[in-house]
Design a protein around this nucleic acid. Sequence first.
DNA 1: AACGCGGGGCA
DNA 2: TGCCCAGCGTT
Length: 348
Amino acid sequence: MKKKPLEKLENDNFRPIGNKLLSWYGKNARDLPFRQTKDPYKIWICEIVFQQTRISQGLNHYNNFIKRFPDVKTLAEAEENEVLLYWKGLGYYSRAINIHKASQQIMNEYHGTFPSEYEEILKLKGVGKYTAAAVSSICFGARMPAVDGNFYRVLSRIFADDFDISSSKAFSYFSQLAELILPDNVGDFNQAMMDLGSEICKPKNPVCGECPVNDDCLAFSLEKTSDYPVKTKKVKTEDLALKYYFVHRNGQFLIQQRKDDFIWKKLFEFPPAISSDLEPFIRNVKTITHKLTHKNLTIEISNVEVLSEAAWDSFIAQNQYIITNFEDSHDKSFPKPLENYIQNSLKD
DNA sequence: AACGCGGGGCA
DNA sequence: TGCCCAGCGTT
């Protein structure tokens, strides 16, 4: 199938498509908490939470986060570990670290007032072109498409365009394509594209019968929606083995905080090694498998119940681990498999 | 320009 | 089992 070059498309009028989407959104917009506000702080938080994250997965996190950190100042004054705690289980933990840094950026460099210009919003930690466009269009009326995975999918189908969305030029290309259909109310249009992509123009089994622009969709008329978007880049999955020791005595156990250079940035974990004098106290070894997007983890956790107070004190003295217990560990953010392990240990 | 980064849902 | 999701920072 021949792709029509972008230059040719610019001679046609595709503006009605954007207006149809806007009209559809007026009747079918999802009722979400961040839809009833134009507070740039809340819109910003919601954009970060829902990066690479489905609404159903992140909605509770968003609500809890806003309840605890209702504004920039509250967030900026909080401890990083508490921000991470509210991110527990969401994944991509650098988002939480960056969101916290950005709040301090806003306090220090913008006197606590959220910047209103795209170029300034873009300077915030963790804010890229997509998020800057989304916040500035929704909250400040900027005329910019918030080009994300939904835009790639919807636009590639409407124009039956085989431009490779895994290419580094995809953002620029689909931004130009979006300009062709951009209506006046860009903030609502951007949100309309998100809802359409999530509810109608889904990656698999799109509900084209209910689509407001199916008359305008070339892929639909060709019955080729499953051919778009085109993505050539392959994702390879690697195996990774981790080893931990759950060292405990009288309901207390040892943890430490990870660095921010690998997976699970700054989350808490068990000791990865023990001294040989603790080996007699190993009760059992459990192997957990855990799938990440690009990794298959095998985590071996040795349950070490330290029956000797001297050995316990000695191990603590030699290392710089944090002593916690089941109750206090609720205040810390653990990787999902370790969180599950702690919960299961509690039942025993 | 390419790669790493979580966790969950779906076919 | 592989792919996708309101992307971004690093190298």
